[in-house]
Design a binder for these strands. Structure first.
Lengths: 272, 272
DNA sequence: TTGCTCCTCACGTCACGTGAGGTGGC
DNA sequence: TTGCTCCTCACGTCACGTGAGGTGGC
């Protein structure tokens, strides 16, 4: 018979751990002195302790371990538990590797001068957005600004004409097509649940919920192209893959004070 | 101005999270109504929230984030923090991958019949052991049992002759050398801190502290070779590499009832 | 008698989730 | 007035670590 300290040394655990396992019913001492409460273990219980530690090292919770010890599960159940565990660990490894690449992307960004732009990239799922928009195909980069200013009033008129209230303005861009068709700009306003009819120019569309990288741009819109450039470099650098169009959400937009604008840039991405 | 619910939806977090960040001083609302306690945020604070979330996603604690936001650290400090973070994530990934390989080794072991033997493999650091031993070189596998029985009484006599008390008996094995020199068996007893002089046959040695895989074998010693075989297969299967000699610790040994024996098998290993 | 080990509470960890119980504005 | 949102506690999470305060055996 060993007292708790001797058994703890033998099994390389703390006495607190043994008391904890006793309390949970995972590993009761072979004998407990009724008068003093002293716990005594047999050397043979080292095998029981090992079983608990082995399962713990595989990542099972103590509650799961208790069930395994108590229910004496079949080979099939055991296999199922191990497979589940494997899948969970694979998820964790994937998450941590993605995190690692984000950290490394930040380290490389520190070498350049774009650290400020890029310090607050967040991965999120996009909100579902219903918007009324006009699409303008065949644009070059320089065309986008003027096109925006041209299209937004037109969509606005349509929305208010339908008796609805516009939300924030939203733009999204389809990639240049392979055969050089240029950029397709979609510009308009969020309308949430309101009823707005289509016209030949204005269409109501639902932007899908996707995984995206997101940064907040604060300040005058003329800084947005540079922000996009640094943002896209960071994304590619972090190992994420582009997975669809990018969006701009104008959360705060005042013509009177453009430098107070708050714009969110979103790029749909997927895990490498 | 947005109330907490609106701001939470904008930033894709819970209101509880925003209250928590307020409490920690990470992100105070732009205005708090003194009468009602209502929190109000400006859209521009979305950028602040993004910074917090971005740092959180890199794996920093909220306390670290608070320091980053408060101290406005230099590029060099930032770089140092990111490098530390990178190293920590790499450790986590390594741990999880090793864990994954252990789970997979168990799954494969379930296909065979050695699941029982191998269910309680634990990775540990070995205890430091000081022992008095005799080494017997040039053995084959069949010689080991008889050699043990021959050597142990001799070591025992030496220890008691020196006025010391033997601890548990311990054996360890050096690999067969490349030129076919056979196995070198070291057999003896733990002596802990006691003074035992060397003789021409008996030597006092300190077994080093190493990372090892360990299983407990309960029962008659004739089961030990089969346990070793399954154990070694599991180790190789789990991706660990052998990194030195293996040991046997006879935690419980009674000649009168050999089936009550408790033997620990240890094999020094290193990460793949 | 002095150390050493043992005992039983009970708080702390980390970033919130989840009620409980109550109040203010449309 | 009825829902909705907001508020402030305060407990729970997971596997122990770490005292606090006290007792029993060499």
């Amino acid at each position: 018979m060993l007292n708790i300290g001797e058994f703890a040394r033998l099994g390389q655990v703390s006495t607190r751990t043994l008391r904890h396992y006793d309390e949970l019913g995972l590993l009761a001492p072979a004998r407990t002195d009724v008068a003093t409460g002293y716990r005594f273990y047999s050397v043979r219980q080292l095998a029981e302790l090992h079983r608990v530690l082995a399962l713990r090292d595989l990542g099972f919770t103590l509650e799961q371990i208790g069930k395994v010890l108590g229910d004496d599960p079949s080979i099939e159940e055991l296999r199922g538990m191990l497979r589940l565990r494997r899948a969970q660990i694979e998820l964790v490894v994937g998450d941590e590797l993605a995190r690692l690449r984000r950290v490394e992307a930040h380290l490389r960004a520190l070498e350049g001068s774009e650290s400020v732009v890029v310090q607050d990239v967040v991965m999120k799922k996009t909100q579902p957005i219903r918007m009324a928009e006009i699409a303008a195909p065949g644009l070059t980069h320089q065309d986008i600004g003027p096109a925006f200013e041209r299209l937004l009033p037109e969509v606005l008129a349509h929305i208010t004409g339908a008796g609805a209230t516009p939300g924030i303005s939203v733009g999204w861009y389809e990639d240049e097509t392979v055969d050089g068709g240029g950029i397709v700009l979609h510009a308009g306003f969020e309308i949430a649940g309101q009823d707005v009819p289509d016209s030949d120019r204005v269409h109501v569309v639902d932007l899908p919920v996707v995984d995206a990288a997101s940064v907040i741009h604060r300040g005058h819109p003329h800084g947005i192209p540079a922000a996009w450039e640094a943002f896209m470099r960071w994304i590619e650098d972090s190992g994420y893959r582009l997975a669809g169009p990018c969006r701009e959400l104008y959360h705060e937009f005042h013509l009177e004070d453009l430098s107070a604008n708050v714009t969110e840039l979103q790029q749909a991405v997927s895990r490498p």
